[in-house]
Amino acid sequence: MEPSLLSAIFILTTMGLLLGYGLGMAAKYLRVEKDPLVDEIEAMLPGTNCGQCGLPGCPSAAQALASRTAPVTLCPPGGKLLAQQLADKLDITVDLSAMGEEVPAFAVIDPDHCNGCTRCYKVCATDAIMGANRQIHTVFTEACNGCGKCVEVCPTQGLTLVPEAPSLRRWHWPKPKSA
């Protein structure tokens, strides 16, 4: 073993040790707790655990988003607005033109079909449906976010999702054509 080889090994190991030790100290001194990202994303989601994203609930959806295994457009009730916020949060550029300019839709109960079986308001995540046993039920449009779970559950197909009619208050200018 020539001397230069020996000294080479010696120098590198000492430098490695020295720098390793220095970084160890710095790591302890600059420690940062759990990644706060997941909680922030969960706070942004609607929190109704409606399952339309295919994941059991909003916390697991947040987890999937944080680990970037799920697209930001996974949450229909959140719509384009939530997708845009999530995209900004995770700093990814996403093409939202695919999501149509969706008009909020509300569940509407057809009185002739409703036999008061109360299955729908048990499953509604926001208590938007009101009605007693064997009485015709009604839907609070204010509280309904159009998640559609009640439509699936209703035995007599009395529930349908109806988009909101255009009104002067909600109307806004279309985007002009640009050359």
Binding site: S4, S7, A8, I11, L12, M15, L19, L23, A27, L30
Partner: peptide, 25 residues
């Protein structure tokens, strides 16, 4: 110690340490 051949290796070691430190900061 005319260890010229070690130059790249040692430079990279030092740079890695400095970068790691910067990332922590």
């Amino acid at each position: 110690l005319d260890l010229g051949f070690l130059r790249i290796l040692s430079f990279i070691l030092v740079i890695a340490a400095v970068v790691q430190f910067t990332e922590m900061v």
